[in-house]
Nucleic acid binder design. Structure first.
Lengths: 205, 205
DNA sequence: GAACATATGAACTGTTCAGTTCAGTGTGAA
DNA sequence: TTCACACTGAACTGAACAGTTCATATGTTC
């Protein structure tokens, strides 16, 4: 019925509760969110909320679990091997920056950093469903392209990480620290083109 | 007497209070830290604490201000221009990763991400005292090296950001999300050498 | 329409915590 | 000795909030 891992009871308003919780947790963090507020946003009584989840922590964990799953799905897309590496990488970079600069990407990242010592495996789960998946996809593509003689790479893991990192130049820190809240197309393509050029300068065949 | 910006009253135990606050805030964050706990760690009565600072927020702001100043000082060091670019960059990279992977760097970063919407200019202040200063130093060096014909760079800002970003490959996310708490010398030099090689492949004359 | 499950809202408990108050202690200077 | 000042510790207030309880309502199924 629901997407939960273990047997959380189901019912008519289960999804409403989770939706409300997602909204409020993402906006206010764990401490900042009050259960009363979540119930109000979810259009549900507090008693109903507590009939589904034993406590606030469990509700939070379930929300983050769902969001990580969603994130993993976004990251799962394969990179098309038929294109020239420059073009394939440009598309990958576009997708990566798109996610990093999105409201959703920002919020999940923030929450995970902030709460990762109250919830010890939160960080790991985020890392595995996001960055690790991205790296695996990227690595698969790079390996493929190297086999076809389009690229020359000694350390595939490092190359993948470097490329992902290059895509964040300037942009990431500025958005994480609220210096800017959005970027122009020009800003973004400057970084993406720079990333591809630098990567190809090192690894181009 | 003290290092504060505006006229906070001074007294015998002023520094004790700030010291205790720094310890507790860095360990537990803003919400997580209780004023009673801070007073206990600082070996000071709560009344004394409140005679120096009007409220918890102001105390927190002052602690972060101090830490950012400290950070700025670490970032201010000039890069030696007499070396070959490979060597100068390797040294810069060493310093950068050293800071990023340090307990102090980690904690300040975490705190600033977590509290940057409760305290809107926190993020900006951290950014300016850290990453922005690093970029300025790096840019100065790159510009210099380009003038001497050692490097060929069109967009100095982007190049500086790319280098800083390359230094974080793999390491940064793993430490931010508690996948690892420390790295071997081999892990670090793998990333640093990779960063220098990739950078030089693109920008070497 | 009776039986059953689910949802409601409002009041209540207990706890945590920021910030206040105050009577009293220690100390150094005039 | 006395005055001024910084400090103390313990008790207190008031607010926020997690989690509970229960009498009542709504709706579905047979």
């Amino acid at each position: 019925m629901d997407g939960s891992a273990d047997g959380i009871k189901t019912g008519r308003k289960f999804d409403q509760v989770l939706d409300g919780a997602r909204q409020v947790f993402m906006a206010d963090g764990f401490e900042g969110a009050s259960v009363d507020h979540i119930a109000r946003v979810a259009n549900v009584s507090k008693a109903t909320l507590y009939s589904y989840f034993p406590d606030k922590k469990m509700l939070f964990v379930e929300v983050v679990r769902q969001e990580c799953e969603r994130q993993a799905q976004e990251a799962e897309q394969m990179i098309n091997s038929d294109l020239r590496p420059e073009d394939a990488l440009r598309i990958a970079a576009r997708r990566l920056t798109g996610f990093i600069l999105s409201d959703f990407g920002q919020k999940v990242f923030r929450i995970c950093v902030a709460e990762s010592d109250r919830f010890p495996d939160l960080g790991r789960r985020f890392y595995e469903s996001g960055p690790m998946t991205v790296r695996a996809r990227l690595k698969a593509y790079l390996s493929n392209a190297a086999d076809r003689g389009q690229l020359r790479i000694d350390d595939l893991d490092l190359a993948a990480d470097q490329f992902a990192e290059l895509c964040k130049a300037d942009l990431f820190l500025r958005i994480v620290f609220n210096i800017d809240t959005a970027f122009s197309e020009a800003d973004i393509s400057r970084v993406i083109n720079g990333a591809v050029e630098t990567f190809m300068a090192r690894y181009g065949a």
